[in-house]
Computed example of a mutant assay.
Amino acid sequence: MQRIKKGDDVVVRSGKDAGKRGTVQRVLPRDNRVVVANANMVKRHVRPNPQAGIAGGIQEREAALDLSKVNPFCRTCNKGVRIGFKTLEDGRKVRVCRSCGEALDS
């Protein structure tokens, strides 16, 4: 089971965007990286492609962050936390906050 999944709220721990909150848009498990909305913004020069309807110019987009630079956000603790795993009575395995013990999975 992954510690961080697509759609999770995370807090960036270090780098130029330290302290920013955002949702995970993509997880790249092969590279141990995640793409977080509105974090690690970079400028890319894009060539125009009229067939695809792409206008050329300079675009700003999110670049991937290393997985170790983000922590899941716990709504109960109101901060970035470490993740633990717990097996429920019905046999489901859920991710839990290490600080308060609250389940992060719905």
Rank of each mutant, 00 (worst) to 15 (best):
I4R: 13
I4F: 07
K6D: 06
D8W: 06
D8T: 02
V10S: 04
V10L: 04
V10R: 07
V11F: 01
V11D: 03
V12E: 05
V12H: 02
V12T: 04
V12P: 03
G15N: 10
D17H: 05
D17W: 06
A18D: 04
A18G: 02
A18F: 02
G22F: 07
T23W: 01
Q25Y: 08
V27K: 06
L28P: 00
R30H: 13
D31T: 11
V34W: 08
V35Y: 06
V35T: 13
V36R: 07
A39C: 15
A39D: 03
N40F: 00
M41L: 15
M41Q: 04
R44E: 14
V46T: 09
V46F: 09
R47G: 08
R47F: 01
Q51E: 13
A52Q: 14
I54H: 04
I54M: 13
G57V: 11
G57N: 12
G57K: 02
R61Q: 15
R61H: 13
E62C: 08
A63L: 00
A63P: 02
L65Q: 11
D66E: 09
D66V: 02
L67E: 09
L67Y: 15
S68P: 02
S68F: 10
V70W: 09
N71G: 04
F73D: 01
R75H: 14
R75F: 08
T76F: 12
K79S: 14
R82P: 02
I83C: 06
L88F: 06
E89N: 06
E89I: 00
D90E: 14
R92N: 14
V94S: 10
V94E: 13
R95N: 02
R95H: 03
V96L: 05
R98I: 04
S99C: 04
S99K: 09
E102A: 12
E102Y: 08
A103F: 05
L104H: 01
